[in-house]
Nucleic acid binder design. Structure first.
Lengths: 152, 152
DNA sequence: GTAATTTAAATCGTACACGATATTAACGTA
DNA sequence: TACGTTAATATCGTGTACGATTTAAATTAC
């Protein structure tokens, strides 16, 4: 293959890097979410877990992990913090003692009302139209899919 | 603008979230970078720092931080690891003893040759044309700028 | 020229991420 | 039914992120 092998470093190293822009956008979201979630006592990953439980409770650790793309090594301590905050319970599934079932407590369920305004705040913070956001979302998903199937 | 204020939880909670797609895309990049950077003994954030030093050495901790959008609380331990790996030196600036100047060692400079293929591998893994990538990059930067100026 | 302020790094504590390994339960097979 | 395998969590170690505080040097104000 013939490839442009001109040194990358002749350009501003950060200028050319799509991954850096992704990282920056991701961080920008984190910064917007933080003041919205702090009054609820949630971090952003915790909010993602609660979102899924609000939609569907109970869920096993593995089911949550599948939805938020995290594994037990990250989720177990995170969910334990939610438990310490009184938002969820963790119990072994009697049908399959390997599974840990996470369920909302009444406190956890109640918190939902206080979180309902968050998505709209985020949407407005983007300053983008729904159509543009959906287009961007599609681009990001295509990109992600391509990256994950890349043969390296 | 007219906004759909229907409760978020009636849709798949993850489906609607642009921030989740950003996060996923970012993680996908991390996964593609890891096998490329592991042979060099670098993590992705460390690679970002090295990229800047390869372009411009020496740099102060603050200058590096400005370029990679990280602060000393993250950079100091990261740079100490690069120092332990023999890639950089850390010295106080005699002109301003508050500043710590990070400079490449000969080993650090030499590593550049082994990293030169990385950007091209990444570009190919995206499966996107340069034009599409640039367009996406522009979208992401607009989005980031809007988020950071949002009045919350 | 000293005190108050600002600035640059570092330190500390909390919370992700994630590879590797361990643990325990369920399952499949002889 | 004992045994090897698979599956679901948990644990451990390393490395970011980042808010809050600390330290020390430089700058400003007076």
């Amino acid at each position: 293959m013939t490839i442009d092998t001109s040194p990358a470093q002749q350009i501003d190293p950060m200028e050319q890097m799509i991954c850096f822009d992704l990282y920056a956008a991701s961080q920008a979201f984190t910064r917007v979410y933080k003041p919205l979630l702090a009054p609820l006592g949630l971090t952003y990953p915790q909010y993602l877990v609660m979102l899924n439980l609000w939609a569907d409770s109970p869920l096993s650790v593995g089911e949550i992990g599948h939805r938020v793309s995290l594994e037990s090594n990250t989720l177990t301590p995170l969910i334990k913090r939610l438990q310490e905050a009184g938002l969820v319970t963790r119990t072994r599934d009697p049908k399959d003692e390997r599974r840990v079932v996470v369920a909302l407590t009444e406190t956890g369920r109640t918190l939902k009302a206080r979180a309902d305004h968050v998505p709209l705040c985020i949407l407005r913070a983007t300053g983008m139209s729904s159509d543009d956001l959906i287009a961007l979302q599609r681009n990001l998903r295509d990109l992600t899919a391509a990256m994950l199937t890349a043969d390296g």
